[in-house]
Amino acid sequence: MKQLLILSGKGGTGKTTIASAFIKLSKAKAYADCDVDAPNLHLITKQSHQPKKTDYYGLPKAEINTELCIQCDQCRQNCRFDAISANEGYKVDFYACEGCGVCELVCPVGAVTLKPAVAGELMLYKSEDVFSTAQLKMGSGTSGMLVTEVKKQIKSAVTDAQLAIIDGSPGIGCPVIASLSGVDMVLIVAEPSISGISDMKRIINTAAKFGTKMAICINKFDTSIENTEKIECFCKQHGLAFMGRIPFDTDAVEAINNGQTIVDVACVSGEAVKEVYNKTIYFLFERETEK
């Protein structure tokens, strides 16, 4: 199974819009949403079945048993994360606690224990196709491990698919690195703005370190022809494969709002994404056989 990861560096570039179109075009048997902070793919790849849900545990959180607590203040003084308050009895701020265990260590009477804490939920939809996704709980930090779990679900549930399409996480942090791990190719969706270019370069650097095969496409290219040309020029200079331009399209917005992909309706962005798709698939499969 070849894994195609779609990434953007910056949020809001249309990563999910493009991923959903690719899923439709390829009739992908397997796909995943690794944007565990704000997953959106499920909104557009409608699932008729209920998913199999699994709790995801992050770092444990401290809990103080106020009946045992002798109010010595050791835990509060030693907590580097300002997570313990003493206002009305000693209490741990669930969101500030990073589960380091120092409070448990310093407590002279054993009033503090680390308790497992659910940090998110994994969902696996299984019918003719397999869709793996997850949602982090509010206040839980970005998690590479949850992303790894999302990808594991796909691998364990799918046996015969040729292609898996993975909607990646934004940014350049550890969830992105976890998304990148083990994929065959990454398609970077860039936006032609100054900040978009800056973010694109950061994500290219990250992917390059991994040695993953990559290609670039530009979404909403007509919002700045000047910056679009800059990106294309940058790709040429650095020998990066360029997969094409997709225009800004109000029909695309309408399609998404109706829960459709942009290739479900007749629109200019849909036509453009088809071309990008064909090139990408060719690049993903053909180049491999040449090697």
Partner: peptide, 13 residues
């Protein structure tokens, strides 16, 4: 010879 960057950090940020 290819050593990749680790899954730096995790449950934070």
């Amino acid at each position: 010879d290819e050593i990749h960057p680790g899954f730096h950090g995790h449950g934070r940020n």
